[in-house]
Design a protein around this nucleic acid. Structure first.
Lengths: 238, 238
DNA sequence: CGTCAGTTTGAGCGAGCTCAACGTGAGTGG
DNA sequence: CCACTCACGTTGAGCTCGCTCAAACTGACG
């Protein structure tokens, strides 16, 4: 079982329990071995550790093996904008691809393990393995459409709809990892949630309270229990 | 000169006057010929013509040769969200790549000419021409970061800042095409601007009026003259 | 010359922000 | 073990920016 521990750096892509979600999903056994050769696994990250800073040279993209990562940009007025939360099995760091340097920063929200995939080697491998190239195009495209869903939400939805959408998204992503879709611990603070959803901390807190009063949620700090997932989904926009 | 007319369908990538902005920028002469072979040029589009509908099978990406294209999504409540405006030399349609069908729709805002690039042939060519693959990854990545800038704007900026940002963006994109950065015709309606920026028509109209009163703009319906570009830039977030 | 889509302007309202106070729990040091 | 701090979260009160609703204007087109 030790090889299956998500914090274990000796693990390889073929054995990784995220491989049904992560890049290997597009690959056959011998191709996974070639991917595995280029993946670098560092030691676990602690809460608050940066994976990369905006402005730093772009070198790699990353896959989350355990924990949770926050991606964010800082605009020229110094205001932070959270652009995404990345959970195990998800890929992040694609903001740097079209630019010499990273546009965003990425930070660990809790103790996390990640895989680093040097982008130039990934490009070479993509040119040789068509299904990897295709999968990678698809990943980036899905990042585009998910950003566009956030755009729609910020521009059209109320505070309650936004919070409901985030919670159903986390619920669905937990389900994909065979975790409970109704009981989980939020890895991010209320401030991060508010920042991501374009709301203040106070508004996020009030929405949680209201949902609790309406018997939709049971909230205990970061521990969430969804009491009425159907109702939550109907309040969300997706 | 006839071959240089942007509406002329007989034009090829090597001669196209957008080739310093469009895909050929990444390619050498003989590679441009290979790209040219897979590009399909239809007849000009009229205002209101769809290039593709959400839900339609994804087949191609597109480059704008002349005119202006609006990309938009319609959510499950039937509400439209404009996700981008595409001007000559720009690529659109990448929302479909990660999904079997298009997620968004695209419509011509005025008489326009576009090039259609069948995506599967583009994938094949990318695997053979590393610089094309790289350029295409970069294009998608830049779509991600530009969506993220919109997210930041929707979540943090005032109505005036949003309008100023859109105008400076269009101004800069015109400059790239060697057109005036201070006098141009907006191809989209106030409603489209408002939808894109997360504002109502009335608010957009009021901001234009205020900018005019402050001697920043001269507005005559869709004809815009930027009187004080520096001030406009300082009001924008980028 | 009427119609109709797009735009502008005004008046009033409300969702979410701001500011402020208070509660909670983990860490720290005497 | 308690006192203190500090980050984080909750709750309340009032305000504001942009929304809603309504009316009037403009120009293109039959």
């Amino acid at each position: 079982m030790e090889a299956k521990c998500p914090h274990n750096r000796a693990i390889n892509c073929g054995d990784c329990r995220m491989n049904a979600l992560c890049l290997p999903i597009a690959l056959q056994a011998h191709e996974i071995d070639r991917l595995n050769e280029i993946v670098e696994r560092g030691r676990p990250l602690q809460r608050g550790d940066y994976i990369y800073h905006a402005g730093e040279m772009f070198r790699s993209i990353y896959a989350v093996r355990s924990g949770a990562i926050k991606g964010f940009a800082v605009n020229n007025q110094g205001v932070e904008q959270v652009t995404g939360f990345y959970l195990p099995g998800e890929i992040f760091g694609m903001d740097g691809i079209g630019h010499p340097n990273h546009i965003n920063s990425a930070i660990a929200l809790e103790t996390s393990a990640i895989c680093e995939i040097p982008f130039s080697r990934m490009e070479d491998l993509s040119a040789k393995i068509p299904s990897l190239q295709r999968h990678f195009f698809a990943l980036m495209s899905r990042e585009i459409t998910s950003d566009q869903q956030l755009i729609t939400m910020l521009s059209k939805n109320s505070a309650e709809e936004r919070v409901a959408t985030l919670l159903t998204s986390i619920s669905a992503r937990n389900a994909r990892r065979n975790l409970s879709d109704s009981r989980f611990r939020l890895p991010m603070s209320r401030a991060d949630i508010g920042n991501y959803l374009g709301l203040t901390v106070e508004t996020v807190s009030r929405v949680f309270s209201r949902f609790q009063k309406q018997q939709v949620l049971q909230v205990d700090k970061k521990e969430i229990e969804i009491l009425d997932l159907d109702k939550l989904r109907s309040m969300a926009n997706t």
